[in-house]
Simulated scan of single mutants.
Amino acid sequence: MPVARTNGVELAYETAGDPDAPALLLVMGLGAQLTDWPQEFTTLLAGHGFHVISFDNRDAGLSSALDDHRVPDIPALLAGDRSSAPYLIADLAADAAGLLDTLGVQRAHVVGASLGGMIAQQIAVDYPDRVASLCSIMSTTGDRTVGRATPEAAAEMGRRPAAGREEVIAGSVARARIIGSPGFPATEEELRQRAGAKYDRAYRPAGTHRQYAAILASPDRTQALRRVTAPTLVIHGEDDALIGVSGGRATAAAIPGAELLTIPGMGHDLPRELWPRITGAIARNASR
């Protein structure tokens, strides 16, 4: 897998589609890897006429691990002391912009999911000339009064990291039943296969901890989002237990001219049944 060296880190990435087509950058979420964008999903996007670029954020997948940093103090971060966070969402956005530099891409359509949506928003704020269009999926603005998790989802995400492949797979399946899409449930076999493949590629719980610290330490983006001029689409599941739909509504309200698509039955994942609808909506927003 190719690696881009930028902003002091190495980012593993891959591409799909015609290299001469307009670039579309996919940004994944907390502890997620580029493989969490299903291959069929990226193929659909390429079929809409995009050169699709996906990558592992720092501290995830095959990209750089920042294990030399001290362990973030999550309770202190929740209380407002940001000093233990090794980096911010703005640094993750700078990584993504640097990847575009490495690939010689001046402007891209930027699509992010969950933490990836936060990073995509920050790219649009910090590098407006680089963003042809923006799509924020199942994400929020950084305002802690919106997009709140249900108690059950919050408790599940706060569990200690699993210790071993089978425990990781079992935990991933249990988590999917809590935060996944109730209207489009995945099969047990599919959930286990995804979790196993993800574990075998890279299991980085300490990196996920540091990414979570970046979320907690980063400022509310609401006011900054009012400066975004790129055509924007916000997609959110109406049954998202991890980032409540109010987070998507607040994002759309903050960005001038943003379109909001809420989907009944969708939770905090990308159900196979919705891939054509979601990729079609992304393509229509890009055409704006």
Rank of each mutant, 00 (worst) to 15 (best):
T6F: 09
N7S: 08
L11Y: 14
L11I: 15
D18A: 07
D18F: 11
L24R: 01
L26F: 13
L30M: 06
Q33K: 09
W37I: 03
P38Q: 09
Q39G: 10
Q39Y: 13
F41Q: 05
L44A: 14
L45I: 08
A46K: 01
A46V: 07
F50K: 01
H51D: 07
I53S: 00
F55V: 14
F55A: 07
D56H: 15
N57Y: 12
G61P: 00
S63I: 13
A65K: 10
L66V: 02
D67Y: 11
I74A: 06
P75V: 10
G80T: 07
S83I: 10
L92R: 04
A96R: 02
A97W: 00
D101R: 14
T102M: 12
Q106V: 08
H109D: 11
M118K: 00
M118H: 00
Q121A: 02
Q122G: 09
I123L: 14
V125E: 09
P128N: 03
R130Y: 01
R130H: 03
V131D: 00
S133V: 10
C135F: 03
C135M: 05
T140H: 06
G142S: 03
G147T: 00
A149Y: 03
A149E: 09
T150C: 09
P151I: 07
A153R: 08
A155K: 11
E156M: 15
R165L: 11
R175C: 03
A176G: 10
A186L: 10
R192T: 00
R192N: 00
R194D: 00
D200L: 10
D200Q: 11
A202Y: 06
Y203E: 11
Y203N: 14
H209L: 15
H209R: 07
H209N: 13
Q211T: 12
A213F: 08
A217K: 14
S218H: 07
P219K: 15
R221N: 12
Q223Y: 04
R226H: 06
V234R: 03
A241D: 06
L242C: 03
G247T: 11
G247D: 07
R249C: 04
A253G: 03
A254F: 04
P256N: 08
A258Y: 07
A258E: 09
A258K: 15
E259D: 15
T262N: 04
T262K: 06
I263Y: 00
R272D: 12
I282R: 02
A283C: 05
R284V: 09
A286G: 15
A286V: 13
S287C: 15
S287M: 15
